[in-house]
């Protein structure tokens, strides 16, 4: 069986939370500086080899004078979660297995650990992540089919493939909690048959845990914890609601069996931290995203900012005219 312990995921892509914050902050600051310097954050990607160059300065741009505001650290965070959820929606629409969805989300998370959403459009990167995930997981769907399914030009998907692969350092084999859940459910069946609970209800527990992992995938947890920890946290939380087995006893058995370096208390703490991340999860709605989307659009194309302001002015003029007429009546 493929082993997480010897994987590039464990070696290179599991972080401490302060690492994540540092990386996101660095990417955010870099994009803000690019905006100040060039008047746009849109980077030029060489479609051939994925190399990236800074943008040409926008015409009439005076360095440091940009009226366009960069996205804040928090707005970037919101954007990432929004598009990660979109990945889940796209995968569900195509009836892809959970593994593809999880791999795509992890690619997306890793990509935006190194780039700001202001530098590469998340809507495009999201699709390329799904596409690459399908290839790696041997569930191949053509770029055209994927693009068509969500009314997007499939060329966008292909244009971003090389930059995605390079940013991921070609570490494309991903371990997801879904598979670990299957393993634990098999194990729990033996546990139940030994008189520790009704094994008929394990199907229910499995379903609830999978739904819980779907939420987990939208948090930072997959970059902080191992798939096994995530799976156990999901089962623990689901069992709290369904009361299928004595989960504390099950954990004790696991730990006595594994002679683990990590004491059970520490592990329970990890489970609590993971579930706290899920509880704190704030999934933005389309409405929440309108303002952020507008800002993002302006960062990419500052001329759209001027147009937006003109429209705004027009609207307010129209409004003030109407108000004066109203006053006369």
């Amino acid at each position: 069986m493929a082993d997480f312990r010897t994987s590039t995921q464990r070696e290179r892509w599991i972080f401490q939370s302060h690492d994540l914050m540092e990386r996101w902050a660095a990417a955010n600051q870099r994009a803000a500086q690019t905006l100040a310097q060039y008047g746009t954050t849109r980077l030029n990607v060489d479609l051939l080899d994925g190399s990236v160059s800074y943008p040409e300065s926008m015409p009439d741009h005076v360095e440091g004078s940009s009226v366009v505001k960069p996205l804040s650290y928090e707005e970037e965070q919101l954007t990432r979660v929004f598009y990660e959820q979109k990945i889940q929606e796209v995968c569900a629409a195509f009836k892809f297995p959970h593994k593809i969805q999880a791999t795509a989300i992890i690619y997306f998370k890793r990509f935006y650990l190194q780039w700001s959403v202001m530098e590469h459009q998340p809507k495009h990167i999201m699709l390329t992540c799904v596409y690459a995930s399908c290839k790696v997981e041997e569930n191949h769907v053509s770029a055209e089919e994927l693009g068509k399914g969500i009314q997007q030009d499939h060329q966008i998907i292909l244009n971003n493939e090389m930059i995605l692969l390079k940013t991921l350092d070609f570490d494309l084999i991903v371990y997801a909690p879904y598979r670990s859940i299957e393993g634990f459910i098999d194990d729990l069946e033996d546990f139940c048959r030994a008189g520790n609970g009704p094994f008929q209800r394990l199907k229910e527990l499995r379903q609830a845990a999978i739904s819980h992992v779907d939420k987990m995938m939208l948090t930072d947890a997959p970059l902080l914890y191992t798939p096994g920890q995530l799976a156990l946290a999901a089962l623990h939380k689901s069992n709290d609601l369904l009361r299928v087995v004595d989960f504390e006893r099950y954990l004790e058995i696991i730990f006595s069996r594994q002679h683990s370096d990590c004491p059970i208390e520490q592990f329970v703490q990890s489970i609590n931290e993971i579930n706290y991340l899920v509880d704190q999860l704030n999934i933005p709605t389309v409405k929440d995203m309108r303002h952020v989307d507008r800002k993002l659009k302006h960062c990419w194309d500052p001329s759209s900012h001027d147009e937006h302001n003109k429209k705004k002015e027009k609207k307010s003029k129209h409004k003030s005219k109407r108000t004066s007429t109203d006053a006369q009546l």
Partner: peptide, 21 residues
């Protein structure tokens, strides 16, 4: 070009196109 963990700085951002293979 691989480090043990990806660096926080943007990967290979240049001011011109990359060299061809």
């Amino acid at each position: 070009t691989i480090q043990n963990k990806p660096t926080p700085t943007a990967p290979s951002t240049t001011t011109g196109g990359g060299l061809r293979a």
